[in-house]
Design a protein around this nucleic acid. Sequence first.
DNA 1: GCCAACGTTGGC
DNA 2: GCCAACGTTGGC
Length: 152
Amino acid sequence: MTYWLMKSEPGEYSIDDLKRDKQSAWFGVRSYQARNFMRDDMKVGDQVFFYHSSCPEPGIAGICKVAKAAAPDVTQFDKKNKHYDPKSKPETPQWVCVEVAFVKKIKLIPLAALRAAPELAEMRILQRGNRLSITPVADAEWNYITKLLIVS
DNA sequence: GCCAACGTTGGC
DNA sequence: GCCAACGTTGGC
């Protein structure tokens, strides 16, 4: 069992959208490293921090869990979709995605608060230059952060 | 295989 | 809008 953090721009898909949908496929990942995490390492039941990025208040906005193992991302075959990949054929899909299910929305834990915690100094998302949209979270980091959160 | 140019990410 | 950092592309 591994803990994860997944980034999403709330203008694209927010924790409120997931709360409404209850479950959703994590479409649109086009990074090999992030894809490999989904394909090889994410297991049904794994818990995930839902992180809001590229927005006025970046930070951890909620918790979800992996509800379905990786399967081909259908947006890669759709010419009209912005995630369309002409190199990808249904026989040889390049991109996969897991599905996640809503667990809870929390009072946002701002990025600045994460940075301020010495316990999280090694956290992947806080490292200089990190751009990966899906990262594993160490058990100790998960435990520390879940002590901070307030369900809202 | 190297590496410069380019595009993207994401915080500020 | 700016800029640092990174991944990808493509010429050689």
